[in-house]
Nucleic acid binder design. Structure first.
Lengths: 101, 101
DNA sequence: TCCGAGTGTAGCACCAAGTGCTATATATGA
DNA sequence: TCATATATAGCACTTGGTGCTACACTCGGA
């Protein structure tokens, strides 16, 4: 997996910053625009993220600081996770449940 | 800061697991119960978490995958972040905005 | 064999969080 | 001076989040 174009540009920006050519704030703004996009997740995908981390619905809920019934509704497709919740799910999907510890 | 009793017990559990005396699932459940409690945050605390990370409300919102107006309401005390949002804020407070990248 | 604990599914009702919009005020910089 | 970015403010709508109860299934232990 080689670097994406955005990664390269980002590295360039970091170098510019290291050379004093970019302000702190500007870099931070830049980072925000280059954040890996939060992917929408289907009910089945959410369930897979959980099971692959060997957690029950209850345990998973504790990790995400939400309720068991909410996790259940996500996996049943009755409700969709909102912004921050989706961010958390993406984090777990990429880095595992341990990042929340 | 020395280890808490729970930490010691947790280490013991991990050793037991390494020795094959505990099942995967059981260990996972145990971990969930020992998660660092998510702290409630005041409006001012949320604002400090953001500013200490040198991010504007807009940028901060992007990181948390939420809306600018939501961040604004948090900091004005008009709304309180719900479970998963609070978890994210705690993560950032402890590990910095970079953990969301 | 039976029982209890853990798990997943289901439905219901409430409400506050989340969202989107517009408008204002204040820097800050080109 | 003008444009941009930022923070604050208010309003109305929608829906995700929560809490509850209940039921079926599995599995290991008494």
């Amino acid at each position: 997996m080689d670097k994406s174009i955005l990664d390269v540009v980002h590295d360039s920006a970091k170098n510019l910053h290291a050379a004093g050519a970019m302000k702190e704030v500007t870099l931070r703004e830049f980072d925000a625009l280059c954040l890996p996009p939060v992917k929408e997740l289907t009910a089945a995908q959410i369930k897979r993220i959980r099971t692959q981390n060997k957690a029950s619905q209850g345990v998973f809920a504790v990790y995400l600081n939400t309720s068991k019934s909410t996790v259940q509704k996500w996996e049943q497709g009755q409700k969709k996770p909102n912004g921050p919740s989706l961010k958390l799910l993406n984090l777990v999907a990429e880095k595992g449940l341990e990042v929340l510890a």
